[in-house]
């Protein structure tokens, strides 16, 4: 048996993004259930005769067989579990929200092959909800961002002071401090979001969709701004896709 035989492994994954490679290949960025974020080459995928077909298009949930490589792995077989791409791209608001979800998942897994099961479940759930059109895309995106930040350890403090930890509902919100702040700890320049916005953030974090769906457009707008600011502060760089999220075409 050859000493350096490449190891084959199997895992299910969400396809986050595709980049063209050479004549007919693509580098596919995957968030796998057990192996974290993986970048793998799909050879010949851009040919119309490719055995992969549309299975490796972004936002799909697929069962894969991969071959380990020195830097990039390669995909040897792909079977679809659920392909959400068709239902997502048919609605522009869903597509832009899904792109922001995929970019966030990629950014929150800076180290390849490090398992991130909670984030995998969250990403899969968010894409499934977007494809099903259960709620407006903007709400699904903000709920995902809040929970994904929670899984990364950056959940904004909403029911206690972010600085002293004193439980309670506070009206001031400071991104650098990490969430709501009490009057004693409030840093200069803290935002004062409406009480409804803080309630919506709590509802989205806890999955209270009845309350979230009943929220006003202005409240949603304020929440999306706070969530985006909080996320980008902790990521220490901007997400390219967030400014392109189309909230005007928000209807589910």
């Amino acid at each position: 048996m050859p000493a350096f035989r490449n190891r084959l492994y199997r895992d299910d994954a969400v396809v986050l993004r595709n980049q063209k490679l050479g004549e007919a290949d693509r580098i596919v960025t995957l968030l796998t259930r057990r192996h974290g974020r993986v970048r793998a080459v799909a050879r010949g995928v851009r040919r119309t005769s490719s055995k992969f077909g549309a299975r490796l298009e972004p936002f799909g949930h697929v069962d894969l067989q991969l071959v380990e490589g020195r830097s990039l792995h390669s995909i040897s077989q792909a079977e679809s579990i659920r392909l959400y791409g068709g239902r997502i791209t048919g609605h522009y608001g869903r597509y832009t929200a899904a792109s922001a979800i995929a970019e966030t998942a990629e950014r929150l897994t800076p180290i390849e092959h490090e398992p991130a099961q909670t984030l995998f479940q969250l990403t899969l759930g968010a894409l499934r909800a977007l494809a099903a059109g259960e709620h407006t895309p903007g709400l699904i995106l903000d709920a995902y961002l809040l929970r994904a930040m929670g899984s990364a350890g950056w959940a904004p403090a909403l029911t206690e002071c972010a600085v002293c930890g004193e439980p309670g509902r506070y009206g001031a919100f400071s991104v650098p401090a990490g969430g709501c702040v009490c009057p004693h700890c409030r840093p200069a320049g803290s935002a004062r979001p409406s009480p409804a916005s803080l309630e919506l953030m709590i509802a989205l974090t806890n999955g209270d969709w009845k309350a979230a769906d009943a929220s006003e457009t202005s409240t949603r707008r304020e929440v999306s701004g706070l969530v985006a600011a909080h996320l980008q502060w902790h990521l220490e760089r901007e997400l390219r896709s967030l400014p392109l999220v189309d909230r005007a075409m928000e209807q589910a």
Binding site: T48, F52, G53, A54, R55, E57, S80, L83, G85, G86
Partner: peptide, 16 residues
């Protein structure tokens, strides 16, 4: 479906 292919290899989106 692409001409010259087998139905069993078509993915759900293409077949749909």
């Amino acid at each position: 479906l692409p001409v010259g292919g087998d139905l069993e290899y078509a993915d759900e989106i293409t077949l749909g």
